[in-house]
């Protein structure tokens, strides 16, 4: 460790390289073990957000989907803060859209509610934090 490195660490500007090695390894191994590259993970993240948004309003900026590994077990961890639940008609429409149930309420404007419920997901830019 050079004096410069030491000062950087003392000032809290730089992590020791061993710690960086561990963090980088944990990330790359989570991907290796699940056979998911970052691109696929990002696609999956967007699709998960899309589905969740049909049911609840979530904070896209705070939403986080990542792979975590402990004891050789890799888990997909999603942390999605909920702002509020969607109104009932939108929920019914969302359920109908995925073929789970037919809308029982004829007053529910299905055609209108579905695009509304899906609106944020159709624009990929807010789902992309970077």
């Amino acid at each position: 460790m050079t004096l410069f490195d030491f000062l950087q660490r003392l000032l809290g500007r730089q992590k020791p390289s061993g710690t960086m090695a561990k963090e980088r390894l944990q990330l790359v191994l989570a991907h290796d073990r699940s056979d998911l590259n970052p691109e696929l993970l990002e696609q999956m993240r967007r699709e998960i957000l899309e589905v969740v948004q049909r049911y609840v309003e979530i904070d896209i900026e705070e939403g986080d989907v990542s792979l975590e590994t402990e004891d050789r077990v890799t888990a997909l961890v999603a942390n999605l803060p909920i702002k509020r639940a969607r109104p009932l008609p939108a929920l019914v429409a969302a359920a109908a859209a995925v073929g789970m149930a037919q809308a029982p309420d004829p007053e529910a404007p299905q055609e209108l509610a579905l695009p509304l419920a899906c609106e944020p997901a159709e624009d990929p830019s807010p789902a992309d934090p970077d």
């Binding site: 460790m1 020791p16 390289s17 061993g18 710690t19 090695a21 561990k22 390894l25 944990q26 191994l29 004891d71 050789r72």
Partner: peptide, 19 residues
């Protein structure tokens, strides 16, 4: 020495990661 100054992956780091 490098491990003690955390400039190398530690013994526990490697055994934790590889389990």
């Amino acid at each position: 020495r490098m491990m003690a100054s955390q400039e190398m992956l530690g013994v526990d780091d490697v055994t934790d990661i590889l389990a």
